[in-house]
């Protein structure tokens, strides 16, 4: 009678437990479902043998709490893995390449009212992809750089549409903020070694070039124009510097985007393991 009751309750418990395992992500179930059911079955037999019904009740309580908490953890970790999937990083790399081309276009067309805001948006996509690539290793430096990048871009984009009605303060503030953000992400990229070191150097070069661009535009707005000199006169040093720096930033972003698009994965021999 006792063995019949054990077999019966074991069978029912196993069915219920197996059904409850749907709480875990599919991938996790594919790998561990059989093992988990087996461990539960062994635990059940042990609990029944030593403490009969009370042992089974205690096992169920403990197993249920364990299932709820760990299923939640696995779901969250699955979701964060999806958010930072290699596909998103490839798209970020492509956005950086197109962003770089947009940075180059004013050099050849002489007009940047539309292309430069677009360039800033696309390269923000690149910064986001880099941040995603850092993942858990972003640290304070990576996070600060990313937040400054968003804030700087947020200030810069409207500045292109209010140029005639307001002074260039959003530009004057936005460009240095974005530059510092780029430099910080560059330093973090070099520290973590998740990408070839050239990518960190490129981000550093982009940041420095953007600071140079901010200075040259500032000289054009606050020195040349008030003195009656055409700020875009190609014979003036600030105008030449602005064009050269736009060109450099464009090339740097294209190169960085190409590196990012080619290195979307997580598995690199230099990457330190995350803690279990």
């Amino acid at each position: 009678m006792k063995s019949f009751s054990l077999a019966n309750s074991l069978l029912v418990s196993l069915r219920i437990y197996r059904a409850l395992l749907v709480a875990y992500p599919k991938k996790f179930r594919e790998h561990y479902e059989t093992q988990m059911v087996q461990v539960f079955r062994d635990s059940f037999c042990d609990a029944y043998r030593h403490h009969a019904v009370f042992g089974v009740i205690d096992l169920w309580l403990h197993t249920f709490l364990d299932l709820v908490s760990t299923a939640l953890i696995e779901r969250i970790s699955e979701r964060s893995r999806y958010m930072f999937s290699p596909k998103i990083i490839v798209w970020g790399g492509m956005a950086s390449v197109f962003g770089g081309l947009m940075w180059l276009s004013p050099v050849f067309t002489g007009k940047g009212e539309i292309t430069l805001p677009l360039a800033l948006l696309l390269t923000l996509g690149g910064l986001a992809a880099l941040h995603a690539r850092h993942g858990k290793q972003a640290g304070t430096l990576g996070w600060s750089g990313f937040i400054l990048g968003i804030f700087g871009t947020g200030l810069l984009i409207p500045s292109f549409f209010m140029q005639d009605t307001a002074p260039g303060l959003p530009f004057d503030l936005g460009m240095p903020i974005l530059s510092i953000g780029s430099i910080l992400i560059g330093i973090r990229t070099l520290q973590t070694r998740i990408l070839p070191s050239a990518s960190g150097m490129l981000l550093f070069a982009i940041g420095v070039s953007q600071i140079g661009l901010a200075i040259s535009v500032w000289l054009m707005d606050y020195y040349l124009a008030p003195n009656g000199i055409d700020p875009w006169n190609p014979m003036t040093i600030p105008a030449i510097a602005t064009l050269l720096l736009l060109f450099a930033i464009g090339i740097f972003w294209i190169a960085l985007g190409a590196i990012l698009a080619q290195n979307p994965g997580w598995e690199t021999s230099n990457q330190p393991p995350a803690s279990a």
Partner: peptide, 20 residues
């Protein structure tokens, strides 16, 4: 310390991924 099947295999999964 009583590990349930979920915490056991969740930890094993991460330790396998980290190469421990």
């Amino acid at each position: 310390m009583r590990l349930g099947p979920g915490s056991l295999y969740g930890t094993i999964k991460r330790m396998l991924a980290d190469g421990w």
